[in-house]
């Protein structure tokens, strides 16, 4: 009996610990979500002493959501962001998978050096190349266009690396059999390699999506016009010289977090599968 109690007590302790960890992990999501339904004054009035209403609104309001969509045209920034991403994801996948196909199945001069060079690209922080990149894109007349946002993102070293890792597991005999049957590289690529790469395609797509959805510096420099401005840059507008519209920031952050969550969840299992098969080798 005593042993049974100890066991139950131990289990309860573990559950309690898990609940605490869960609350701590969810707090950064729950707090902005609930704060998006209250006014700034109510938020600061209830900041101290810490009580239930520090987190849960007293008077629930949609005011912040209405304001960001009506006064600040947040919907058009969401649309711009989705267009940008809809262009970047397929573009990146096409370019990187083709490049990875060449690196994985063909031998050519300077192959190793070139691959190392591509890998370097995702180790250099965006801030370091912002200035020359701006000069280049500006000289091409692409500032404030979707092309200016999209083109620099298409060749992605990390995605290339993932594809190469995944393709290296594909038996070369499959490609040789295509050749014997008279098929060319395009047949091998489109009929054999790509259909086998579903998890890595989804993983790469999700990685690109999350990176681009959260990107701030490049859209700030390359897309300042209303017609191409994206969500991350638009959220900064709620911080004015002498006022921060906290409620607007929370509402906009909630909306812009929900979209990736809804896209990410259905593909979660592929994402994990893709990462493990593309990255870690046993």
């Amino acid at each position: 009996m005593k042993r049974f109690d100890k066991k139950r007590l131990g289990k309860a302790g573990i559950y309690l610990l898990l609940v605490i960890v869960l609350i701590i992990s969810l707090f950064p999501i729950i707090y902005p979500l609930l704060s998006s339904f209250r006014t700034d004054n109510e938020l600061f009035e209830n900041m101290a002493p810490f009580n239930w209403h520090t987190i849960v609104p007293i008077e629930w309001t949609w005011e912040n959501y209405i304001a960001i969509f009506k006064e600040y045209q947040f919907g058009s920034y969401l649309k711009n962001t989705l267009i940008m991403i809809a262009l970047i994801i397929p573009g990146t996948i096409v370019i990187c998978s083709l490049a990875a196909f060449a690196f994985s199945f063909y031998d050519f001069k300077m192959k190793k050096q070139l691959f190392a060079l591509f890998l370097l690209t995702f180790m250099i922080p965006g801030e370091a190349i912002a200035l020359p990149l701006y000069s280049l894109v500006n000289s091409m007349g692409l500032i404030n266009t979707y092309a200016g946002l999209v083109l620099p993102a298409l060749a992605n070293g990390l995605v290339l690396f993932l594809f190469v890792q995944f393709f290296s597991d594909t038996p070369k005999a499959l490609l040789e059999s295509v050749e014997i049957d008279g098929g060319g590289w395009w047949t091998s690529f489109s009929r054999i390699v790509l259909p086998l790469s579903k998890p890595i395609l989804i993983t790469a797509g999700l990685m690109v999506f999350v990176n681009q959805w959260n990107d701030y510096l490049w859209p700030l420099l390359a897309a300042r016009a209303q017609e191409v401005k994206v969500v991350t840059v638009a959220v900064a507008n709620f911080k004015e010289q002498n006022v921060i519209h906290w409620g607007y920031i929370y509402a906009a952050s909630t909306v812009s977090a929900l979209i990736p969550i809804f896209i990410f969840l259905p593909f979660q299992k592929y994402f994990v599968q893709g990462i493990t098969s593309g990255g870690v080798k046993g």
């Binding site: 809809a86 262009l87 397929p90 573009g91 996948i93 096409v94 091409m140 007349g141 692409l142 500032i143 404030n144 266009t145 979707y146 092309a147 200016g148 999209v150 083109l151 298409l154 489109s190 016009a225």
Partner: peptide, 22 residues
């Protein structure tokens, strides 16, 4: 899927060429 990818890339190029910013 191939056609969609091609169209997307084309859209990138077109949007790049079609608008000179300001």
């Amino acid at each position: 899927i191939s056609v969609l990818m091609g169209v997307s890339l084309l859209a990138v190029m077109v949007s790049g060429c079609g608008k000179k910013g300001d």
